[in-house]
Design a protein around this nucleic acid. Structure first.
Ligand code: NAD
Ligand code: NAD
Lengths: 206, 206
DNA sequence: TTAGAATTGTTAAAAATTTAACAACAAATT
DNA sequence: AATTTGTTGTTAAATTTTTAACAATTCTAA
């Protein structure tokens, strides 16, 4: 199950989120068009994605939500979860820690790092903040494989090297400075301004 | 210039960001492959996008950065900028306000809204936070056209209706609850968990 | 018990996006 | 002055992603 289209992988994550909500409401089965409504995409796309991961629903009864959630888990989770570090315990770093803390997911933020003495050696939402000097040590000890960069942009590039050298395999960069690719490290970037300017463009032109 | 592919619009925003950095460093001209490196995409894609917006560089000299920045501005900005509101002055709301405050862009956050008395009637990074009761009034007064939702997810759906009724044309939803489409309102969603699970998937499978 | 409605799974078609290929030509080098 | 090198702009091809179409099947209810 390792040749799924990129876009399908993204949607699987969203399916699971919505499906869990439905489960919480006591629903056990769901139709493709219901999932589609939840995510405002088309039912065909839902059915096709589900086909690609090799799951089958029952005709006229829909998909068993729990089964589907489990299967998605098998595909996108690792068996015992993956440990994550946040580097830069500012507004954004805190927002993410707080956010992930509320969800129970296999992705777990197990450490934060900063250089500011005010932030260090304290916990925020159960995540302990270490000094940057301990970066390599803690990454090794906690076998952290993914890092989220929320420092000021100036620090990002050097930091990414350090993370790579410490053995990280994935980096999520929220800094507005785009990073160059590093061999063996999957890189994902996000800049809010891109989203915002996209909205602005469509507001202007539609 | 209003039939650009979605993906090109997204990239234009990123081009501008990087180009401005280069300008700041005193560079005046740039080659397609340099832009490509900055964003880790291919030079062809850069050239093609630039072609689509109708700009021409000079052979063997590259693109005039200032001209290109100006042209991108003409395409994605409105003439006198666009006013934005943030609803929900928590960690994430603050992070965005702080972030946009530092950039000089035509997109300007002119108001924040919250229900918590601790947050109301104070300014954060020059943005004044109003009580939700004043939402419609301030939106009209400041002719706000775009809203960023950073409240708890429970509030999102009702809020989106209220924003639509108040005349907003674009909504950026950072709440993990996907909103349904509203006639006449461009909607963009972002959920960090999707990015994170995508990284986790590729870390696991590559 | 038959006809009609609803829903899945899948193949095929369409649309969107990215990549390749290369002609044109300016600048640098011989 | 001739040749090589580097770079753009653009058309065409390839790839990826979305949408359409529909056969198969189950349920509902006439
Ligand atoms: N991509 C987006 O959508 C988006 C949105 C908002 C902010 N941002 C960016 O995210 C980053 C953080 O934003 P914020 O509002 O949380 O800023 P912030 O100033 O609140 O937080 C930055 C934190 O990083 C720490 N830090 C500074 N240098 C460091 C270093 N070398 N190593 C480790 N930690 C260091 C600081 O002590 C601080 O705690 C900024 O780069 C900002 O531009 C991005
Ligand atoms: N999409 C993402 O990547 C991402 C990341 C982190 C957090 N989040 C989400 O963003 C939202 C905000 O996160 P946060 O960490 O800033 O939370 P927070 O609790 O710090 O902030 C929420 C703010 O909204 C205010 N609020 C509550 N109800 C409101 C209402 N009805 N109207 C107006 N304001 C109201 C609260 O007073 C508070 O100030 C949450 O929904 C969270 O799940 C999303």
């Amino acid at each position: 199950m390792n040749n799924l289209p990129d876009k399908t992988v993204e949607r699987l994550s969203q399916y699971r989120r919505s499906l869990n909500n439905q489960l919480a409401k006591g629903k056990t089965h769901i139709f493709s068009h219901e999932i589609a409504n939840l995510l405002h995409i088309t039912p065909v796309q839902v059915r096709r994605d589900i086909m690609l991961i090799g799951y089958s629903g029952t005709l006229r009864k829909g998909y068993d939500i729990q089964d589907l959630v489990n299967l998605i888990g098998q595909i996108i989770d690792t068996d015992n979860g993956q440990n994550i570090a946040v580097i830069g315990m500012g507004n954004l770093g805190k927002a993410f820690i707080h956010y992930l803390y509320e969800k129970r997911t296999k992705l777990k933020i197990v450490a934060a790092f900063d250089v500011n003495p005010d932030k260090i050696n304290k916990s925020y939402a159960d995540v302990y903040c270490y000094h940057m000097d301990q970066l390599e040590e803690i990454i090794a000890k906690e076998s952290i494989k993914i890092g989220i960069i929320t420092t000021p942009p100036e620090a990002a590039s050097e930091l990414a090297d350090r993370l790579r050298d410490a053995g990280l395999k994935g980096i999520l960069n929220y800094t507005p400075k785009p990073l160059s690719e590093r061999e063996g490290v999957y890189l994902e970037e996000y800049d809010m301004i891109t989203s915002l300017e996209k909205v602005a463009y469509f507001v202007k032109n539609k």
